[in-house]
């Protein structure tokens, strides 16, 4: 039997198709004008890779922004639950998940079954979200991944004094106009980002078996800074960090179809 998971974020839409315990197809696309369109496109793309149609899928769960509006899903669940479930499925040791999305930052505590214990979410302030890095990467003319890799070369990172993304943007422009090396600016940005995320982890009780999910997990600079600030190493994930939410949704799809 086949199961589907859809995760609609603010920047990307993700789909995962599973058969038993195996991921047989997946897809990541940039979001379109509305979540319904995004979900239809990413789902079709993932299915078409195996010449499948929605009828071949036994149960499909949707998560993320606008999930209630997705017409073809059987159930919608919170992205908090799905990220926790997905991470735990890949590595049963994981008890805490940091998920930095396009416009939010979540810190999630889960139990050994991947069920939600507690969480904190920031979706009010752009600092510490993917948006912050997107803005900064743009200013430096770098991709999000490059923002990470280039920063690893830095020997003297700049310090950003403001948390607010708007103020920090102005500081970065000032550094750029003073011809400060891109790697040093990038390093300062990644540190500020990691610091903001780390502050969120202080708000709830979290076990040290951490995983980091979402697009920001691909920024090596942020990841390294976070590991230093949290004094731990992130648990490895064998699947693209951006797919964890959709994966969790697909796993929930399986358990819901059994109980159906």
């Amino acid at each position: 039997m086949l199961f589907g998971g859809i995760d609609i974020g603010s920047l990307t839409g993700k789909a995962v198709i599973m058969e038993g315990d195996e991921i047989i197809s997946s897809s990541i696309i940039l979001v379109k004008r509305n979540p319904v369109l995004t979900s239809e496109l990413v789902y079709t793309e993932a299915l078409s890779k195996l010449n499948l149609t929605p009828d071949d899928i036994n149960f499909c769960v949707g998560t993320g922004y606008g999930r209630e509006r997705i017409p073809f899903i059987n159930k919608s669940l919170s992205e908090i639950s799905c990220h926790g479930k997905g991470a735990n499925f890949l590595n049963n040791d994981i008890k805490s998940v940091i998920d930095v999305g396009g416009q939010d930052c979540k810190v999630i505590s889960i139990d050994q079954k991947g069920e939600l214990v507690d969480f904190r979410m920031n979706e009010k302030c752009a600092a510490g979200t993917g948006r912050y890095l997107e803005i900064m990467a743009d200013l430096l003319g770098l991709s999000l991944t490059e923002l990470g890799t280039i920063s690893l070369k830095s020997k003297s990172p700049i310090a950003l004094s403001s948390e607010c993304s708007i103020y920090a943007q102005s500081e970065v422009l000032n550094y750029i106009s003073r011809k400060i090396k891109k790697q040093d600016i990038a390093a300062g940005i990644n540190y500020a980002m990691a610091k903001r995320v780390q502050k969120m982890t202080e708000k709830i009780s979290l076990s040290p078996e951490f995983a980091i999910t979402g697009g920001v997990a691909k920024n090596a600079g942020v990841v390294k800074n976070l590991e230093t600030l949290l004094n731990l190493n992130f648990q490895p994930l064998s699947v693209d960090s951006q797919l964890i939410g959709a994966l969790g949704a697909a796993i929930f799809a399986q358990s819901y179809s059994i109980s159906k």
């Binding site: 603010s10 416009q103 009010k124 302030c125 752009a126 948006r131 803005i135 993304s165 708007i166």
Partner: peptide, 8 residues
């Protein structure tokens, strides 16, 4: 409340 999110 955030200027950046308000823009979107």
């Amino acid at each position: 409340q955030c200027s950046i999110f308000a823009e979107t």
